[in-house]
């Protein structure tokens, strides 16, 4: 493949590239959004009960171990889901369970007990302690888990092309079948760029969202 092959592929297929990128992007965004809405509260809830935390974290771990192709294959056989976005979303949300629940749980559990004790002793209620202390102090760990989730979701979303998602994964899949190198490279590069780009943006967000007092040392 020469550079001109590659550029001419880009020129000729710009509309498809845009469409696939958009699909890829919205799938990732939806999956991450739903995952956050479900798993962050679950993670917070689990900090209340060690027994349940052990159970749910074990389940999340097990789900995380299932290879993504197998997962998609299993979901497709379930009548309610079948081929398409529903199955893709469900799989991605299930994969996000482990890193999100784990990081929220660890983040909150790692907060210095003495800080919580002092806050309670001053008359701060449970809700206030959660919002003003546990979440901000757990933020470095929680956010690390969130970044991993986003990058991972971008990657696994590409595989959803096998169950009918028309996204950047398709370039790689079809490129492989047709031995079309420019097509493969285009898919691979754009997916990587999206993952790296999102992670970089989140890195910048992290700097703003992690409390200043935690980054300061003597």
């Amino acid at each position: 493949m020469t550079l001109s092959d590659f550029t001419s592929f880009l020129m000729k297929n710009s509309k498809t590239i845009m469409e696939y990128s958009e699909n890829h992007f919205t799938l990732v965004l939806l999956a991450v959004g739903i995952s956050l809405a479900i798993w962050v509260p679950v993670g917070l809830l689990l900090t209340k009960s060690d027994k349940w935390a052990a159970r749910v974290l074990a389940l999340a771990n097990t789900i995380f171990c299932i290879p993504s192709l197998s997962m998609f294959a299993i979901l497709v056989t379930i009548p309610m889901f079948g081929l398409g976005r529903k199955s893709a979303l469900l799989a991605l949300v299930l994969y996000a369970m482990m890193p999100l629940i784990r990081s929220v749980y660890d983040g909150v559990k790692n907060v210095d007990r003495n800080v919580i004790e002092a806050a309670r002793g001053m008359g701060m209620g449970t809700r206030r302690i959660l919002i003003e202390i546990l979440v901000p102090l757990g933020m470095p760990i929680i956010f690390a888990g969130f970044r991993i989730t986003v990058v991972m979701t971008t990657g696994i979303a590409a595989i959803a092309t096998y169950i009918g998602e028309r996204n950047l994964g398709r370039f790689i899949q079809e490129g492989l079948i047709r031995s079309n190198t420019p097509m493969m490279v285009t898919g691979a590069l754009i997916i990587s760029a999206i993952a790296i780009g999102l992670d970089t943006i989140l890195g910048l967000v992290e700097k703003r969202i992690v409390p200043k007092g935690l980054r300061i040392s003597r």
Binding site: D112, N114, V115, E117, A118, A119, L137, P211, K212, G213
Partner: peptide, 14 residues
């Protein structure tokens, strides 16, 4: 007023 040995200042607050 409540003071403990480990102090427990909020590290993210001035």
């Amino acid at each position: 007023g409540y003071v403990i040995q480990q102090i427990g200042l909020l590290p993210h607050r001035t």
